[in-house]
């Protein structure tokens, strides 16, 4: 729900409607953050879905959390195991991976809450462009690493 509404707003970036859409998204995110710590509030809405759907949602959340942990581990690994890399590159790459990990974990819990709420209300599950963004980032990083390795090999 939220994702599709956001996608429509983004087309008119800069217009008052887009600004309003952004404000609505921020308010929605803050509301979701409150829900992380107030499970009773989620439980008060709608009806309880089949427990298997809730467990599947939980496993998806855990899979995203593992992705986040892997990104954080990658950040540590870049810092620790690439001492020959220039300081700027090493710090930049490590911080980028760590930031991606933080984003990924925050998004994991936010998406979990939104899915849980959508299932309780009987709505469609929220659409999201996050997986596409993350895979593009990972692909770009992988291509960059190939270039670096080939350049180091040739030089």
């Amino acid at each position: 729900m939220d994702g599709t509404a956001g996608g429509r707003d983004r087309q008119g970036a800069g217009s008052p409607a887009a600004g309003l859409g952004r404000v609505v998204r921020v308010i929605d995110f803050v509301r979701n953050v409150r829900l992380w710590f107030a499970p009773e509030e989620v439980r008060r809405e709608g009806h309880t879905p089949d427990y298997r759907f809730s467990l599947a949602n939980e496993r998806t959340f855990l899979a995203w959390l593992r992705t986040a942990l892997a990104l954080i581990g990658g950040g540590f690994a870049v810092d620790q195991f690439l001492p020959d890399l220039g300081w700027t590159w090493r710090i930049g790459l490590a911080l980028a991976l760590l930031a991606a990990g933080v984003l990924c974990s925050l998004r994991a819990v936010n998406h979990w809450v939104r899915c849980e709420r959508a299932m309780r209300r009987g709505e469609d599950l929220p659409a999201s462009r996050f997986p596409a963004l993350l895979s593009i980032v990972v692909a770009v990083v992988a291509v960059a690493m190939v270039v670096v390795v080939l350049a180091g090999w040739a030089g």
């Binding site: 829900l35 992380w36 710590f37 499970p39 989620v42 939980e58 959340f61 819990v109 979990w112």
Partner: peptide
């Protein structure tokens, strides 16, 4: 089985 509490996820 009990549903995951939002507090635990957070």
């Amino acid at each position: 089985p009990p549903v995951l509490a939002a507090r635990q996820a957070a």
